[in-house]
Amino acid sequence: MSKRRFAFPYLIWMTIFIVVPLFLIFFYAFTDNASGKTLFTLEHVKAIFQPLYLKVIGRSFYMSLIATLVCFVMGYPAAMILASKDFSQKNTMLILIVLPMWMNFLLRTYSWLSLLENEGLINRFLVSIGLGQVQLMYNNFAVILGMVYNFLPFMILPIYSVLVKIDKSVVEAAKDLGANGARVFLRIIFPLSMPGVVSGITMTFMPALSTFVISRLLSGGKITLIGNIIEQQFTITGDWGLGSALSLLLMVLIFISMIFINKYGDESVGAGGLL
């Protein structure tokens, strides 16, 4: 059965809509058309290293890292509790944790507006108990909160799925050999859960790093991240060169994290594990 031709329509599609756009990113990142002629240039890549953009990149990293850290600190215990055998209704709980992910990402981010606003619920509560209004939005806090809120389940699930797979008898063996609860955790459970942790960190960090929606909505445009700069280049400024160079930066980071996750991550959580 010569079915190879079945793939031809997709191959054409793939070439036009995946390969060419990718090429275009490289093309615009490394060429300049200012003089009417298309010339190779490193200007756009250099532009990334201007203090203005370096600051944005630094901020993006800083905020994504904090959000990832908070997700990890909040998520690891949650994953452990859900994975513990004596926890009843764990399936229901797990589904409940997963469910918000099905809700539109914009709506989830938007939902914090009515809580965080100056006229929002939290501030009304603070005022009513006499603490006075606090600026909750338009700052780093709000953006990090939005990231944590959106990506927390992405931290919990991979860690959980690794933890439940840990052979119970391995834990028993460690106890049998004289390890107390803390030692069992530090020497056995935590090291064995590393693949899930690596996956969770990547799954939280990368989308946080490339977001422009969370920062746009929760900081009211006051805080600029890499994503916002890219967005501006394509919707307002029209500087495709810089936008492409920044996109390339994100792609390089994805590529690096892929290598990292393939080495240390939980393959079964990765899409590759399915094939």
Partner: peptide, 19 residues
């Protein structure tokens, strides 16, 4: 095939826009 799955949406978005 994995590229659009792995790439941040914003990169996929702008690259298609350029296309």
């Amino acid at each position: 095939t994995y590229i659009p799955v792995l790439n941040p949406d914003i990169v996929t978005g702008v690259s298609l826009m350029m296309l």
